[in-house]
Nucleic acid binder design. Sequence first.
DNA 1: CAATAAAATGTTCACGTTAACATTTTGATT
DNA 2: AATCAAAATGTTAACGTGAACATTTTATTG
Lengths: 337, 337
Amino acid sequence: MVTIKDIAKLANVSHTTVSRALNNSPLIKEPTKRKILDIASQLNYTPNYNAKSLVMQKSHTIGLFFSTISDGTSTSFLADAIKGVNSVISEDYNLFVRGIDDYEDFSSINSKRYDGIILMSQSDADNAFIYHVREKNIPLVVLNRQLEDRTIINILSNDREGSHHAVNYLIKCGHQKIAIIEGKEEFKSSHERKNGYLSALIEKNIPIHHEYSEKGNYEMQGGYTAMEKLLSLEKPPTAVFCSNDDMAIGAMNAIFAKGLSVPHDISVIGFDDIGFAKYTTPRLTTVKRPMEEISIQGAKSILSLMSQQEDQGGNHFENTELIIRDSVRALNDSSPV
Amino acid sequence: MVTIKDIAKLANVSHTTVSRALNNSPLIKEPTKRKILDIASQLNYTPNYNAKSLVMQKSHTIGLFFSTISDGTSTSFLADAIKGVNSVISEDYNLFVRGIDDYEDFSSINSKRYDGIILMSQSDADNAFIYHVREKNIPLVVLNRQLEDRTIINILSNDREGSHHAVNYLIKCGHQKIAIIEGKEEFKSSHERKNGYLSALIEKNIPIHHEYSEKGNYEMQGGYTAMEKLLSLEKPPTAVFCSNDDMAIGAMNAIFAKGLSVPHDISVIGFDDIGFAKYTTPRLTTVKRPMEEISIQGAKSILSLMSQQEDQGGNHFENTELIIRDSVRALNDSSPV
DNA sequence: CAATAAAATGTTCACGTTAACATTTTGATT
DNA sequence: AATCAAAATGTTAACGTGAACATTTTATTG
């Protein structure tokens, strides 16, 4: 492996001069600079980042952490987040991807190792991690889950508003018996989305029936099982708000399995707008959550946070959007807006 | 930041003794070892991995590279690979994720920075990368694409066999007019899967019609468009082999859009067995490709390759499996095996 | 052309750790 | 107790780089 000292010898200068030349310091005369750069490229020199990091106290590494990678994080969620972050950070940053639940303790997570951390947070259980990162003074951006601590940069979609909007749409379509299939209980988003569902019903004075709430887990099978239970009720709902698209797909399958049709017998609405939502039969009406946009914003934020030290915390909401397709039926004449 | 020298001072020993104690060297007496470990944990000591890496010439980093992350890599593919690798490597390795197409040149990829590299290879264009990694003497495992070079560890599914099997099944079901929707042209797997399709037809002496081959791109929209073309043929096929599930889903949608039914009017078979395949309507018959298993094997291989230096190259095939669901209809009496 | 400031380059140290070699302590043997 | 081997610990250097300070070279000015 060739080092700056090797280059120094060949160029007949000190290794510091080489260092300066490679870092494009204005202190070095043009001719020598060129000579050094020439030799460096001829020798195929590449800097040793460990040495660099050691002396400069920077790691050139950004950590992208998920609450969990193996347990219940949907593929599209994981992939969209990585794609988003990846598209923003430049070649000279390393991107480390890991799940918080992979760690027994957080001792290996410190400012020497990470210049910045993006946390894709799904659960309150992440708070210990957040606390640790803050304590170690590592620049941090939290995505996807709202924090009380307003000093932390926080980028997320307004899930409550999104689900409120969705349920409101069902009501406008004439539905009154509206059920919900909830998300994974440990995930904050589940509660946000349920709250939007509740607030929409309350706003329109529609009574809330306990039996219209079914627990789910954000997985297709969970949506299927939950829907089966709803269908076996004495008075089944006419519409179901599913807390994510995966469960909506499972729910539709449960409906088909009973010989019923969507949206004729039961209307279904989802959340996320994953790629497949356009290709279900019927096409799924859902709330679009701009996951990739959120991670792009997150990556940009962490970069600016790392360069300037001005820590401008607070929430940044990316808007959700109701995507109307074919899985909801209007029960009344007044066509919905 | 607390270093081993700080600990040394407090323990009244040399920093080397501390280093040895922390690394559990047998040279250190039990009592001193305990004392040092105590102090270390009290001070909340965490090792500086940059220093460690610098002197030990190890990076504690495993690179997981994709041909591309942003351009045409399906979400389930990306996520399954990361999940698989992540589940195997231990806490003291960093997992680095990046797309090859993010790099202008590979100069930053060297053995100081990566202890090992797992390449999820989709395209011949990766060969330059592979060559570079080999030249730098970085342990390498290539997943998902067959290499000529038998000295490189290579783990993949036998796609040709899988698609042969699938098309054979269609034939056994009485189909003769069997079309194919091909994958992304630049990806090796597309050709493998097409070859399996062709060999199955040839084996059974079924004439190959040029118009029954449609180009696709591994995306749902591509499957849709390709299917539309097939349906507009004078003699449309009775069965379609789609080179992945995403396109199969798109194809089914195109069939529905024409008012036709799957499998009654046209049979559809996919490849991959993604999570959604169980939840399409009808449920998708497909070839299961054990992506997560492949990445788990890949991660295990890279770890063993990194520890022992015995480089045992060659291909390791993970078996595909035909998953029979409801999207293929038997045209004849003889029920298929 | 000397004096002096500015520019260019060199010397030495530091970063935090492990490793090679050196020294001291311990314990067994006579 | 003296001797010696083994065990435990210490000293110093090394990894590759950047930074502070020191020195030399160059350009500018009177």
